[in-house]
Design a protein around this nucleic acid. Structure first.
Length: 937
DNA sequence: TCTAACTCCTAC
DNA sequence: TTAGGTAGGAGTTAGA
């Protein structure tokens, strides 16, 4: 029952032939509209469902339904977007908006804009927000899908025409059912060059094959891959170029659009759509050639006032069961809407099943049936029209749950949550598998025109944490933790009274539901069950971690749509940059066949032998800055500078024009051909330098946030270029490049070690002989023999400067820090106090040891941390030994808090009990090993 | 009891 | 139709 519905005045009854009126955006009068729109049709369903409840109730149900919808409508309408000004309505001004999402649909091409074509075509849809906060759906016409093949030598215009006919015929065979009049629209002869290998000629003839619809690119590629009959040449198969570029990305690249940038369509160049297909305030058609894409700089680096919805649902699960949409009702939906750039939400509400006592500052909307709750939420989404939807685990839980629940309840009209009229949200199971992120099953929920940002996914990608429950993530980042609601009492609270449901609503809005963390011996089996999520904390996390800025900047730097950043891997970002740069240089990128595993793997970096020990003299650390990017720049390593072994023999290139890498590959120097990868890297690193300089100058916290997000994105982006070339199952692997990079790296670390030990000697006039005690990939740890930190720092700086001079620019060795004292256990395992100024140490730094690993129980972690503290900071080794002994003794005497033992092999938390399987024996064994570390001394 | 092959997680 | 890389320590498991 509506909280505001206590005035039960009857509206004029609707005429008997018309269904109950739809909820309109600006509901002011109760006059029912004609039953012609989709919304009215939808309401007819509602009418039918409820008639099943009993004939005599029908009229009162209609009336009540009508009245409540009116009340809801007036409640929701105050949250609508700002109304359009006259200039927009008269179409006398240009439309400038920040784009957040781009996709495409197949439709009739626009007759006025494209008078020549009258068939089905891809229509690009750009969704975004203007500076004033108006929502935009821009329908772009005239952009066609295409790809390239290299043109067989001697092919003239007639041959191309024949080839076109043959290809068209094969396409027809493959698509017998399709009514498309023409599959291959045209074939153009163009001058391009493949990005692969150094070539002396500037360009060669290529054929640009333009097809009718985006999906035909793959079909056509298949035909050309397998081979096609060509007059005079016989059966011939082709390598295709850029045939794997997603259509929307192709469009963005060709129009110079990067993720999240501003787009302008001048007045007169757009036409209001005849029949709105979206719920956006501004919807119009235009030609792709009329778009102006603004680079994200200056005034166009700002953010539009997006509407960000954070939501969370609560379900009444049966005792001991995880809620299932086929059985368990949705009892609450909590919502929070914030304008981008503001620190407080402008909407806070909660929709509850059954009555709920008021909550200060929150709009409580109560309903008698679950169906009303769901439909109210749908209306809310439509009215508020959020650009970004966030939440915790919404992609895998909340959104699919709502949709499946609506299916169970037979509410066919519920899943129209996107910006496209009549278009239902689709749920698809997906799996994402990579070495970096592991295999993760999720669900893909397409909400057209709105960006989804699941904070859980973002956390799992960006941070290594031992638990990803909202509770523990909040504790980690926000230093606040809310009281848990145990899952078993959710149903009790719901089944109580208005007051207990209020308690539940407060939890739903602000608190955190119970998260049961099951740690199995195999951490990949770890499952986090979050029975109730939360609407408030995701928004706080989003703000605290500056996710909007960081992700928009990442999209701008790499050029991919924002949605790719959470749904796709690293390599698409590099590919996007590579395609953009290649286009500028008139180069095209081949589709390499999946080479299988025969290419195998390549040798990586050198890890210097660790001279294990406890060092009580300062250890200076020298690091190469951005090692792999700088190697690629210094030696011009790229696809287009690599000389094939055959060409090395044939071309007879003078030795001063090429570099031969330690792994035996040959690359030409920039004078002959400047590499694209080095150029991308130079731009990224130069941009990062600028961003960091601007960051220093910036006063405004928002500007700072943008700049910091940018410099971070630029760094991450530069570092992933090398990985892209070595990804054998990627888009364009080139192990010649990656193995050359690592081979230079290996040479450099050895060279550095030798130089330090040769120069800093007593014979060379220094006080002591320097010794390199360890080094990994891009760093060397040096004991100069001096005993004070400042002296070690000075020698470190001197060494870095001296050694940098011996390398090709921009390779640079830097002095970074001193460890004092330093405990080196083995390769990749060490601890020490970290000094960047000689007055005081910055922190205790530990690498690779139990303290930083997530596969030990808390006891081990705490014990080792405590020992290291005693050894490094207190310098009390006997104390550390005693501490270990006491702990083992406590353990054996069964005096240990069992919760410290969770997460260890053989120990599982089941409910409130710990199942202890021979734990004491096992842990005593573990402790013995740790005491070995202490016995070091 | 030893070892090879595997898993897991980390360093870079 | 979608996925950055290798090195390496520590633990587990299977088999002899």
């Amino acid at each position: 029952m509506n909280k505001g519905g206590n005035s039960r005045k009857r509206p004029p009854p609707p005429s008997s032939h018309q269904p109950s009126p739809a909820l309109k955006h600006q509901a002011t009068t109760p006059t029912p509209p004609p039953p012609s729109t989709e919304e009215d049709f939808v309401d007819e369903d509602v009418f039918f469902d409820e008639t099943l409840m009993g004939e005599e109730d029908v009229e009162s149900l209609i009336l009540r339904d009508f009245e409540e919808r009116q009340a809801l409508a007036s409640r929701l309408s105050k949250w609508a977007r700002p109304p359009l000004s006259d200039a927009y309505i008269s179409q006398s001004r240009s439309i400038v908006f920040q784009q957040l999402e781009i996709d495409y649909v197949i439709g009739e091409s626009h007759k006025n804009l494209l008078p020549d074509s009258s068939c089905q075509a891809a229509i690009i849809r750009i969704f975004g927000v203007t500076g004033e906060g108006h929502s935009v759906c821009c329908l772009v016409h005239g952009f066609e899908p295409y790809f390239y093949i290299s043109c067989p030598p001697g092919m003239g215009p007639d041959d191309i025409s024949h080839f076109h006919q043959t290809l068209e015929g094969r396409m027809k065979e493959m698509n017998r059912n399709s009514k498309v009049p023409k599959f291959v629209r045209r074939i153009e002869l163009v001058q391009k060059r493949s990005i692969m290998y150094y070539q002396q000629q500037k360009s060669q003839p290529f054929l640009k094959i333009v097809v009718a619809l985006p999906t035909m690119v793959a079909t056509c590629r298949g035909i050309l891959d397998r081979g096609i009959q060509i007059d005079g040449l016989g059966m011939k198969s082709f390598i295709t170029y850029e045939s794997n570029v997603l259509f929307a990305l192709r469009f963005m690249i060709d129009c110079n659009i990067v993720g999240g940038n501003w787009i302008e369509i001048p007045a007169g160049k757009y036409k209001k759509t005849a029949k709105n297909m979206s719920y956006c305030q501004l919807e119009f058609d235009c030609l792709y050639s009329d778009l102006i894409s603004h680079a994200p700089e200056g005034e166009f680096s700002k953010m539009a006032p997006f509407r960000i919805l954070s939501f969370d649902i609560e379900c009444a699960g049966r005792k001991g069961h995880f809620p299932e949409p086929s059985q368990d009702p949705v009892i609450q939906v909590a919502n929070l809407v914030t304008l981008q750039g503001e620190d407080q939400p402008f909407i806070r509400n909660v929709m509850t099943l059954k009555s709920c006592s008021p909550i200060v500052g929150v709009d409580v909307m109560s309903f008698d049936t679950e169906k009303e709750v769901l439909l109210a939420w749908r209306e809310f989404i439509r009215e508020v029209d959020p650009d970004i939807i966030i939440g915790y685990n919404i992609c895998k839980f909340d959104l699919p749950y709502l949709i499946e629940r609506a299916q169970t309840l037979g509410i066919a009209e519920f899943p129209i949550l996107g910006r496209i009229r009549n278009s239902r949200v689709r749920v698809k199971d997906t799996t994402f598998s990579s070495r970096q992120y592991g295999t993760r099953e999720s669900k893909e929920v397409t909400v057209e025109g709105r960006v989804q940002f699941d904070l859980l996914q973002a956390m799992q990608r960006d941070y290594k944490l031992s638990s990803y429950s909202l509770n523990s993530v909040s504790a980690h980042f926000l230093s606040e933790q809310k009281e848990d609601v145990h899952h078993s009492i959710i149903s009790d609270l719901q089944n109580g009274n208005a007051e207990t449901r209020r308690r539940l609503a407060v939890y739903c809005l602000k608190g955190i539901g119970e998260g049961i963390l099951l740690w199995a011996s195999n951490p990949s089996l770890v499952e986090v069950y979050l029975l109730s999520e939360d609407a408030y904390l995701p928004q706080r996390l989003l703000d605290k971690l500056m996710y909007v800025y960081n992700y928009v900047e990442m999209a701008r730097v790499t050029g991919v749509p924002i949605s790719f950043l959470l749904s796709r891997g690293q390599s698409i970002k590099v590919l996007s940059q590579l395609l953009r740069k290649s286009k500028q240089k008139n180069l095209v990128i081949p589709n390499v066949k999946q080479a299988g595993s025969e290419q195998g793997t390549f040798e990586g970096a050198t890890v210097l032998e660790a001279k294990a020990g406890f060092y009580e003299k300062p250890i200076a650390t020298l690091d190469f800055a951005s090692l792999y990017p700088s190697i690629m720049m210094a030696y011009n390593l790229c696809y287009c500078t690599l000389v094939t072994p055959e060409d090395v023999r044939k071309l007879n290139l003078p030795p001063e024009c090429v570099n031969r890498t330690p792994s035996g590959e040959t690359f030409v120097k920039p004078e002959l051909q400047k590499g694209i990868l080095p150029e991308i890297l130079e731009e990224l690193l130069a941009a990062r330098k600028r961003a960091k300089a601007d960051l220093k100058e910036a006063k405004d916290p928002l500007e700072k946030a943008v700049l910091d997000g940018r410099q971070l994105a630029l760094k991450v982006s530069a570092n992933s270029v090398y990985g892209f070339t070595g990804a054998t199952v990627g888009q364009l692997p080139c192990l010649e490049i990656s193995s050359s990079v690592t081979s230079y790296g290996r040479q450099m670390i050895e060279h550095t070690k030798k130089l330090v030990e040769d120069k800093f000697t007593v014979l060379g006039g220094y006080e002591h002989n320097a010794e390199v005690i360890y080094g990994d990939t891009d760093s060397v740890m040096v004991q100069f023999g001096v005993s004070d930190v400042e002296a070690a720092m000075n020698l470190g700086r001197e060494a870095a400067e001296h050694i940098s001079g011996t390398f090709t620019k921009p390779i640079k060795l830097e002095f970074e820090k001193v460890y004092y004292p330093y405990l080196l256990i083995s390769k990749k395992r060490y601890a020490g106090l970290f000094w960047t100024n000689p007055q005081k140490f910055d922190k205790m730094d530990t690498k690779g040891i139990e303290t930083v690993r997530r596969d030990n129980c808390l006891l081990v972690k705490n014990l080792v941390t405590e020992c290291l503290h005693k050894i490094l900071i207190d310098r009390d080794i006997p104390g550390a030994v005693q501490y270990v002994k006491n702990t083992i003794s406590d353990l054996l005497m069964n005096r240990m808090d069992l919760s410290l033992l969770v997460i260890t092999k053989g120990l599982t938390k089941t409910g409130d009990d710990y199942e202890v399987k021979a734990a004491h024996v096992e842990l005593a064994e573990r402790m013995r090993k740790i005491s070995v570390v202490v016995a070091f001394f």
